[in-house]
């Protein structure tokens, strides 16, 4: 994927030089391995800072909310779907955007790689499907397929769904992936088992809200967790409040979540809160035939009514 670098720099420099956009949102190398950081590039000379590799898991659509200027944005499959969602929800207009589409081959899971090794990782380099992790000067070889982020391993929309220019030919989409094995496992549990599973899942949560800050859907000016009149949810680490936060956040993402994995990636304690959003994603698909962010021409299921909407639960 890193071969896209030159093309991204070239397109971005051109857009800025020709004043087609006021800035380009992309990634530059972070100060730590596997942590590329989002950056705003304002002039053509700085476009050389832009990078692309398997550590660009942050969802850049997050930086578009209510922006007024013309923006060039680097978008992989999931970013592009969140850009569509942003446009549908009037958080940015299509005319303001020049979307530089990047066919994605998956991002690597920094939690997983960190957990695989003892000691501090000094460098993570990639060459095609090979990942080389350097620790204490010693190189360890990994296969990228083994260390993909969990959401990337089951991704079926790697190519951008909306773009003005692509940096490369589309990649082949993954077929025959079982997207919801983990959700089905939980669905099969009794309510008591579910309760205990979630209790365990959420027990490490420190309420840092990294998940909601990384999420492009969480753009409310005041989040319900921060409201004080009324205070919907307690602010501490009481398990009831932690659970209320995670459940409500997931429900707010119902029919909107693209499973970009930004929340899980951002979590400092490695909670897989994606099981909640994935359940809603599965329901949206099964009950309404809806996958978020694929088209600008259709309204999401939660803001439309259709006479054939499922209503078996009402008696």
């Amino acid at each position: 994927m890193s071969e896209y670098n030159d093309k991204i720099k070239e397109i971005s420099a051109r857009l800025l030089k020709e004043c087609q956009v006021d800035m380009v949102i992309g990634f530059r190398k972070g100060s730590m391995p596997m942590m590329n950081e989002p950056c705003f590039i304002n002039n053509a000379e700085d476009a050389a800072q832009l990078v692309w590799d398997s550590n660009c898991g942050i969802n850049l659509a997050n930086y578009l909310t209510n922006r007024k200027e013309k923006i060039g944005i680097i978008a992989k499959g999931c970013d592009s779907r969140n850009i569509v969602t942003h446009i549908i929800e009037n958080k940015i207009s299509r005319e303001q955007l020049y979307i530089i589409g990047v066919p994605c081959q998956g991002m690597i899971d920094k939690h997983k790689i960190n957990a695989m090794f003892e000691g501090e990782i000094q460098d993570v380099a990639e060459n095609g499907q090979k990942i080389t992790v350097t620790i204490d000067g010693k190189e360890n070889a990994l296969e990228k397929a083994d260390v993909l982020q969990k959401n990337c391993a089951v991704c079926i929309h790697r190519n951008p769904v909306i773009f003005d220019e692509m940096v490369a030919e589309p990649v082949e989409e993954q077929k025959d992936v079982d997207r919801y094995a983990d959700v089905r496992e939980i669905e099969a549990m009794t309510s008591e088992e579910k309760w205990n599973t979630f209790e365990e899942l959420l027990s490490p949560c420190i309420r840092c809200y990294a998940c909601k800050n990384a999420c492009p859907l969480c753009y409310c000016p005041t989040c319900f967790v921060d409201e004080s009149k009324p205070q919907w949810v307690g602010k501490g680490q009481d398990p009831t409040d932690v659970r209320t936060f995670h459940f409500l956040r997931a429900f707010h993402c119902g029919g909107r979540c693209t499973d970009c994995g930004a929340c899980e990636r951002a979590c400092p304690v490695g909670i897989n809160m994606r099981v909640f959003t994935k359940k809603l994603e599965k329901d949206s698909f099964e009950q309404f035939g809806w996958e978020a962010g694929l088209t600008l021409d259709e309204r999401p299921p939660l803001d439309t009514y259709r006479p054939d909407d499922p209503d078996d639960f009402i008696r």
Binding site: N196, F198, I314
Partner: peptide, 13 residues
């Protein structure tokens, strides 16, 4: 969610 299904009811009346 871990809430017993019988605790929640929906009806249109």
């Amino acid at each position: 969610m871990g809430i017993e299904p019988d605790r929640i009811h929906y009806s249109w009346i």
